[in-house]
Write a protein that binds this DNA or RNA. Structure first.
Lengths: 120, 120
DNA sequence: TGGTATAGTATGGTATATGATACTAAGTTA
DNA sequence: TAACTTAGTATCATATACCATACTATACCA
């Protein structure tokens, strides 16, 4: 049975991981989520296994071509998203979450629980 | 006994919470963590119960007066940090994490686990 | 001939984030 | 008298993030 971790224990583990690896893994993840459209795009992608550019543009309200492209490129560079290009006419592209990306969902789930608890 | 939540179940709960409240709680939390110094400052604050401005400036390498002030003000506005001012000479200020702020640690712990798993 | 479809890129602008440096008050200590 | 202390603020400069709009290629379909 899994015991809930204490605050003190977390700080202990976190401190150790920082001093060992040099960079903080938590900060690294948070920096992957920086940007206005990261969260909406990841959310839209979690709703479908495979998504195409045009579909994402519809499902993420307000995003421009430029920002959607930038966001997807960054997510791809961080290994959270996979991009597959089909050179037909008209050409199209299929986006999907990688395992690394899908495994963020326990993080998001903790965020969701926290958010529901402290929503005003 | 707590069962680990599945990806599909998470998406179901997340979708429901978005449509009910209008805004996504996960996005709201992520936006509280936007900014270069949020994570380092929160980390430094988690190491001590009470921290003073000058102490934070030492423990967060590279931060300027301006950015530290801005970051602390935003964290305070989001209810994650408490600020208490003492009007002595010289005046000083004590910063601490609120309950809301301390309860982020399960989120950070999930981030830490993910980060350690996918660190390159 | 002209419209449709796809996944963007190019360009130029505004807005926000971040940074560097100097400066403040007012009592205490050297 | 001058330096020290604290927690910032003020000012200006730079850098990054974000936005709006127009444009591309190429085959297919009407």
């Amino acid at each position: 049975m899994e015991q809930p971790i204490t605050f003190e224990k977390y700080v202990e583990i976190a401190s150790a991981s920082v001093t060992e690896s040099g960079g903080c893994p938590v900060t690294a993840l948070i920096s992957m989520l920086q940007g206005k459209w990261k969260s909406p795009v990841l959310y839209a992608m979690s709703l479908n296994d495979i998504v195409r550019f045009g579909e994402l543009k519809k499902e993420v309200p307000g995003v421009t071509n430029t920002m959607l492209t930038t966001t997807l490129r960054e997510l791809e560079a961080d290994g959270l998203v996979h991009r597959e290009q089909f050179n037909e006419i008209p050409p199209h592209v299929e986006y999907s979450l990688t395992e690394k990306g899908k495994n963020l969902f326990p993080v998001f789930y903790e965020m969701l629980k926290w958010g529901l608890k402290y929503a005003e």
